[in-house]
């Protein structure tokens, strides 16, 4: 039974493509400088002469129908059911990379080399070892701790200040305030409110994975 469904909303109108979210993620999660869990992609929309360059962050989509979890031969990729977050158990991963092949968003990265080259190492998030797959966790360590301490997770209509609640590192550091995080099942959450008011889309919807990252157009 799902208690919550954490989701992320990316307001593409506000994203300036500065990649601060990428750096914040790498530092928070001890990700190598050669890897990214939170990639910023850019595309061009519209037609001549009204072109618009659009930037958008692409973390793991934490899909409801997760092909990466299905294809994992050891169950190392799993969903934390009560929060709807897809994770990788590093102790069970055999490095077969089936999940990377199955992911339509190319959101997973593999540790090809020894973990030596990183900006900082966060002691709370140990560096993953050689030969395993890793990916965005929605900063699960922060959410986990907040749950234990009874802190508010994600912004709400009553508390829209991201600095006063617990949100992933990319959300808190976003320069343009383009990222929002919260429980999509909660009608009071800012993510629910934004999705009600705005037109949005999800990436590669045809794949039928029901991703939990939404893009406001």
């Amino acid at each position: 039974m799902k208690e919550k469904q954490y989701a992320m909303v990316v307001d593409t109108r506000k994203c300036i493509g500065c990649k601060t979210c990428t750096i914040a993620c790498n530092m928070e999660n001890s990700v190598l400088t050669t890897r990214t869990w939170q990639t910023v992609l850019d595309t061009v929309e519209g037609g001549y002469p009204d072109y618009r360059r659009v930037f958008f962050a692409r973390p793991c989509m934490h899909c409801k129908k997760h092909p990466c979890v299905d294809v994992c031969p050891t169950g190392a990729s799993y969903e934390k059911k009560e929060w709807g977050i897809v994770l990788v158990n590093q102790r069970k991963c055999i490095g077969c990379r089936c999940c990377m092949t199955a992911c339509p968003y190319e959101a997973r990265v593999f540790n090809w080399e020894k973990p030596e080259d990183m900006l900082t190492e966060n002691p709370v998030v140990p560096v993953r070892r050689l030969g395993v797959v890793e990916k965005c966790t929605f900063c699960i360590h922060k959410i986990d701790e907040a749950h234990k301490k009874g802190l508010q997770i994600g912004t709400t209509i009553n508390e829209p200040d991201r600095y006063k609640v617990v949100v992933p590192a990319c959300v808190i550091e976003c320069v343009g305030n383009a990222l929002y995080f919260g429980d999509i099942c909660d009608p009071e959450s800012q993510v629910s409110s934004l999705l009600k008011k705005n037109k949005y889309k999800r990436l590669a919807e045809r794949a039928g994975t029901e991703p939990n990252v939404y893009y406001i157009e």
Binding site: P73, K92, C93
Partner: peptide, 11 residues
């Protein structure tokens, strides 16, 4: 092809 050949028996 396995990244962690030492864990192949996990399958």
């Amino acid at each position: 092809d396995l990244g962690r050949i030492d864990r192949f028996y996990y399958i």
